[in-house]
Amino acid sequence: MNLLVVGATGTLGRQVARCALDRGYRVRCLVRNQTKAAFLKEWGAELVKGNLCDAKTLPPALEGIEAVIDAATTRATDSLSIKQVDWEGKVNLIKAVKAAGVEKFIFFSILNAEKYPNVPLMDIKRCTELFLAETDLNYTILRPCGFMQGLISQYAIPILDNQSVWIAGESTPIAYMNTQDIAKFAIRALEVPETVRKSFPVVGNRAWTSEEIISLCEKLSGREAKIFRVPLGLLRFMRQTTRFFQWTQNVSDRLAFAEVLASGNPLDAPMDEVYQLFGLDREQTTTLESYLQEYFSRILTKLKELGYDKDKNKKKEKKTPFKKPQF
């Protein structure tokens, strides 16, 4: 099958491309910068330059394509807004997919998007789901709620570097999943006819609060976390302030999403029937414990080889060049 992966340089998209190639698919990737996407070519994927926000670049990318997996989303540092990429760009893509007669379309939404109409990214995901439902495409919607990969920069690295870990509001239990496992569901959605025109949660084996993740990181790293709690009111104030400036609108939208993470409402869903329908083994899904265990084991071994702790202790023991004053 000829497959187009959109957003293939992202955290999730690259795993989708890797999984598809491993399964023997002929993979084409729509990319904005071919230099940054060179690793995809090395893996065996075909690169085609294009942009969701430039509708005329999409038809050439879809020539000969039988299925599309859309894993694209805007980033906080992007010059384009969430509305431009995640709404206008996705509408362009869906229209182009329909015009090209593509057989299957896989879209990544967010779990419980319909419950947060005041959060831009969640509302846009919900609107895209509704837009898809109005088409005659053979689509499947997958709804993850958090990537394990994001926990490294959020918790693991600050704890290792003795920096503060920020927690906002009431801790929300989130069923994080490894993007490698999410990618497996995307590929299986292409192969299982019963997934057509349906939506499915794609979440981890259990939901974790921030405090539980921090405790696990402390246990695995042998280091104590410095926790800084951000009042929810401060987040709201920052969001209102950043909305006034065009160059900080993406930051404002991300801060709105932070309120979801601080709401205390669990992001989790039952998965037994989903595993059964997709023909995947739950026992082979990565647990958060094993994911973080592997990370800390690898990074602590590397730090030991580099003598990081030894050098750090030397710095602490270094005496001041100034003589102690005598009284």
Rank of each mutant, 00 (worst) to 15 (best):
I65M: 08
F185I: 01
P59K: 12
A156H: 05
T57Y: 15
A45G: 04
N112G: 11
G89P: 00
S79G: 08
A183K: 04
E134Y: 15
R243Y: 13
T57G: 12
A168P: 03
P321I: 00
T172S: 06
I299A: 06
K324R: 14
E259R: 10
A258C: 05
G24K: 03
G50Y: 06
Q246I: 01
T172C: 07
I124S: 03
I299S: 06
L3K: 12
V274C: 06
E283I: 05
T128P: 07
W247E: 04
N118P: 03
I124P: 02
V192M: 10
A186T: 13
L93G: 06
V85M: 12
A96I: 10
L58A: 09
D309M: 04
T248W: 04
M177G: 02
A256H: 07
F278C: 04
T242N: 09
A61V: 13
I187C: 03
G264Q: 05
R28C: 10
D123W: 15
G13I: 05
I227V: 11
I141N: 00
R236P: 08
K319N: 03
T140I: 06
F322K: 01
I94N: 10
Y155W: 04
M271W: 15
Y291T: 03
P270R: 11
L12K: 04
A20Q: 11
P59Q: 11
A175D: 07
R197I: 05
G150K: 12
A113Y: 13
G89R: 00
L40G: 10
V203R: 01
L142M: 14
D253C: 06
A113E: 10
G204S: 06
L21N: 08
K184H: 01
N92E: 12
T73R: 02
L3N: 11
L216A: 05
A61C: 12
L280K: 12
G13D: 04
L300I: 15
Y25I: 03
Y155P: 00
F107C: 08
N250F: 11
R206I: 02
S221Q: 05
T57R: 13
M238A: 14
D272T: 14
L80S: 14
F327V: 08
R14P: 00
D86W: 03
Q84D: 07
K316G: 00
S171F: 05
L306I: 13
K115Y: 11
A186I: 13
D268P: 05
G222N: 09
T172W: 05
F107A: 08
A20R: 11
L300G: 12
F327P: 10
D268L: 07
L300E: 14
T140D: 03
Y25H: 14
